[in-house]
Simulated scan of single mutants.
Amino acid sequence: MSKTIVLYYSATGTTKRAAQAVANQLNADLAAIHPVKPYTAEDLNWHDETTRATVEQKQEHDGRVPIEDDLPDLGEYDNVIIGHPIWWGIPPRLIATTIDHLDLNGKVLATFGTSSSTGYDRAQTNVARTVRENGYQLDLQQGDVLNSPARLTAWVNSLNLK
């Protein structure tokens, strides 16, 4: 019997709610990703070019943000789903750090974002590049922005999990 885990990072609670809904639909385990330095509301002010998140997101493709060393062991999981907000069209840089720290070889990986205004194309490209840079051999599923219950259910139903 295959097992699924949903990992997520949520700054405001929106992605957490989506991750919980995905985990419920898939009967999956759920775990949060924690940045070493939590984000404040001021850090997330996208109207200010000098805020922490803006500066981090404008780094080169290999930019990373440190995360806590509390990720679960994926040994018992066949499917890994990672949820994240979309900042400046891509996942927060700590998602690349998370992918770097996981052993995803042989897994099915699916990612999703939450956003009120952005699609998932750039985020999918960003995740695929990070997977490639790590040399993982895995089945990367198409991600989506889960901005409504109907969209969330349709995306979950589209997944080809083990």
Rank of each mutant, 00 (worst) to 15 (best):
K3T: 08
I5P: 12
L7S: 04
Y9T: 01
S10V: 04
G13S: 12
K16T: 04
K16I: 00
R17F: 03
R17A: 14
R17T: 14
R17C: 00
A18Q: 10
V22F: 05
A23L: 07
N24Q: 14
V36T: 14
K37P: 00
K37C: 01
A41G: 05
A41I: 06
E42C: 00
L44D: 05
W46A: 10
H47A: 15
T50I: 00
T51Q: 14
V55C: 09
Q57S: 14
E60C: 01
H61T: 01
D62N: 15
D62W: 10
R64F: 09
R64G: 10
P66R: 06
P66C: 06
I67K: 07
D69R: 11
D69T: 09
D70N: 15
P72L: 08
L74N: 07
G75C: 01
G75H: 12
I81W: 01
G83W: 06
H84W: 00
H84A: 15
I86A: 01
I86Q: 08
G89Q: 10
P91F: 11
R93A: 10
L94H: 10
I95N: 09
T98M: 03
T98K: 05
D103P: 03
L104F: 01
V108E: 02
V108R: 00
V108G: 04
T111G: 05
F112I: 03
G113W: 04
S115C: 11
Y120E: 09
D121E: 15
D121C: 00
V127T: 10
A128M: 07
A128Q: 14
R129Y: 11
T130P: 03
T130H: 13
N134P: 06
N134H: 13
Y136S: 06
L138C: 07
D139R: 13
Q141T: 04
Q141L: 03
Q142R: 10
D144T: 02
V145C: 08
L146V: 08
N147F: 08
L152Q: 12
T153P: 04
A154R: 11
V156N: 11
N157P: 01
S158G: 13
L159G: 04
